[in-house]
Computed example of a mutant assay.
Amino acid sequence: MQRLPIHSSSIGVTFLGTASAMPSSTRNHSALALRLGSDVWLFDCGEATQHQIQKSTVKMGKIEKIFITHTHGDHIFGLLPVLAGCLNGAGGTAEGVDDPRTQVNLDEPPLEIYGPLGTRAYIRNGLKFTHTLFGRPFVVHELRFLSDPDTRDYTELPLHAAELPSGRNIPQIDGVWADVYKDEVVSVSAAPIMHSVPCVGYVVTEGPVPGKIDAKKYLPDIKRNKAPMSVMRTLQEGKSVELADGTVLQGPPRRNGRKITILGDTYDPSPVAPLAQDTDLLIHEATNAHLPNVDPHTKETDTYETVQDRAISRGHSTPQMAGLFAKRIGAKRLVLNHFSSRYPGDDHVEPSSKLIMDAIANLAAAEYGDLVLCARDLMTVEVTLPTS
């Protein structure tokens, strides 16, 4: 599907769920939506993601792709309901009643799903044994780790009726999965990140965009030659224009587009660092924090070191670890995500919750060297083009 240029608008990230492991009354399981122009891509689909979408400004019908970081339940249990919502899913009809969903038009553009080994088996088995039919096709691409089999899918079930056979098993080359998706506007690359199970960090990169144009620089030549002002559009794209008197005008050079790095659960995302360098937005987990005199649940025996050791033992990070990584890759903005259920997500209305989340942000900021934002459910962060 041809994508329209997005450089004229912002890229937005809406956090649909910001909890780790157990949801709470103020945080849903992990999921976020990336808006690229008019299209929406989901990253992880924890339980009740479909409900969160309905509460948000995200449109179910705009979802084109879903990227799964890892197959822990708090990141994937909501995937099948979201697919059913996107693809006109249903449980079939009574005997003797025709259902058009039994004959899917596989020539339609599919909804694409990317994830580690096991994603395809999870989907295929879940759909088979819930008797779910779809009205539109889908395809599953798996990012294979070096220890994974080349072809085996962890299931002997045949393709679902709506599943295209063109799903790729994408090998890891030189430590990364480069350009798992790429079109004329945007690309997605990925790398393994360290967790308790195979886990992926994704980097979404916008292609080069038009440079900043100074109209005053070109107007005298354009007016002297009585050229149409439409030549400014050509110059804005970085192209050259030859005027009637032979003067050649050269548009400004194109500049780098935006880069968004979305990490799954991790205690060490180092493998993704080369891909994520100078990212405009880093979304990094901060599951556990030591907050003496702020968090009433703080244990007297805990220290910053013991909390970090416990987080690492479970495959997770502290705010300080997130801040250090953001500084290491030169991230322009850092948003913390994936919080323990003990950390409330109502800090925009509850002063005591704000104290806790501000303390978490400050721990990361002390290492990062800049302001840090803590995500909460249904929050949207815009990623605009730099002014220079």
Rank of each mutant, 00 (worst) to 15 (best):
R3Q: 14
P5M: 13
P5C: 12
S9M: 09
S10K: 08
I11E: 10
G12L: 12
L16D: 10
A19H: 10
A21D: 15
H29R: 14
S30L: 10
S30P: 04
L32A: 02
A33H: 07
L36R: 04
V40D: 04
W41T: 00
A48D: 15
Q50E: 13
Q50N: 08
Q54V: 00
E64T: 14
F67K: 05
I68C: 10
G85D: 13
G92N: 08
A94T: 03
T102I: 14
D107Y: 02
P109Q: 04
E112H: 09
I113F: 10
Y114M: 09
R124K: 08
G126S: 05
L127V: 11
F138C: 03
V140W: 08
D153M: 11
E163T: 01
L164G: 01
P171E: 01
V176Y: 03
A178M: 07
D179S: 13
E184K: 08
A190N: 00
I193Y: 07
P198W: 08
T205N: 02
E206K: 01
D214F: 10
P220H: 07
D221P: 01
V241E: 03
E242I: 11
V248D: 02
P253V: 06
K259F: 00
K259S: 00
G264I: 06
D268T: 07
D268A: 13
S270I: 06
L275K: 04
Q277H: 08
D280W: 00
L281W: 04
T306A: 11
Q308Y: 11
D309R: 15
T318Q: 07
T318N: 07
A322C: 04
A326C: 01
K327V: 08
R328I: 07
G330E: 02
L334I: 07
H338M: 11
F339N: 09
Y343Q: 09
P344E: 12
S352T: 15
S353G: 05
K354G: 14
E367F: 02
V372R: 08
V381E: 13
T387V: 13
